[in-house]
């Protein structure tokens, strides 16, 4: 494991901690897309089905369990917590799941390396993760007064993706048998989706103004 990969994972973990702090600390999920959170839960479930059959390291197994646990908790809080669910912007969070899930499923079926249930679902999770942030970005555009925690959550998530690209570049040059075109392509697409957000995030940071995304 290289430093970019570790830093990327830590950013990912930190993004989830920030989100959980916001949700449980101030008892509000305002500005957070439940659709994106449910898509991430689906991504983790379909990707980590091999959790008990394909042991890589204790680190990997623990992280997988943490991601599954925390994303389940976030979805639970947003859907069922008596107080928190009242702060969910349901009317604004209108992105259609099918628009992201259906193409990911078709692409997974068309391009899977091997046709086993685990492999097709793993491929599906790669495609779906690339686009799962879109409902969140659309919701951010519609949210007036984006709070710091929400802005930082999306920023940390985008940083995680950027660091994974550095990790792949590093691995490409240091490991002979590391060639994952599908993962790389999806990863780059996913990172490009964040570009617009990053631009406005840095602009607000530089000008010391509140983050706002133009519609």
């Amino acid at each position: 494991m290289n430093v970019f990969r570790l830093a990327g994972d830590m950013m990912h973990l930190l993004s989830i901690v920030v989100l959980l702090l916001k949700i449980t600390g101030i008892k509000s999920c305002r500005g957070i897309s439940l659709k994106t959170q449910e898509l991430y839960l689906l991504v983790f479930i379909t990707r980590y089905l091999d959790i008990f059959t394909n042991f890589v390291s204790l680190y990997n197994t623990v992280m997988k369990l943490v991601f599954l646990g925390t994303s389940s908790a976030i979805v639970y809080y947003m859907r069922y917590d008596r107080i928190i669910k009242l702060t969910y912007d349901k009317e604004q969070d209108t992105f259609k799941y099918l628009l992201l899930v259906a193409p990911s499923a078709v692409l997974a079926l068309a391009t899977s390396h091997v046709y086993t249930v685990l492999e097709v679902l793993w491929t599906f999770s790669i495609y779906l993760e690339a686009v799962a942030i879109m409902p969140q970005l659309v919701l951010l555009q519609r949210t007036q007064n984006i709070d710091n925690l929400t802005g930082n959550y999306v920023f940390l998530l985008g940083s995680y993706r950027g660091l994974y690209i550095l990790n792949w570049i590093y691995r490409f040059f240091t490991e002979k048998h590391y060639r994952q075109w599908l993962v790389w392509t999806c990863g780059v697409v996913q990172t490009i989706i964040y570009c617009d957000f990053f631009y406005y995030y840095f602009l607000s940071w530089q000008n010391n103004e509140k983050l706002a995304l133009p519609a």
Binding site: H12, N54, N60, V183
Partner: peptide, 10 residues
């Protein structure tokens, strides 16, 4: 088999 050892990322 080529793919097996490559699924070491999260």
């Amino acid at each position: 088999a080529e793919d097996e050892d490559e699924k070491d990322e999260l």
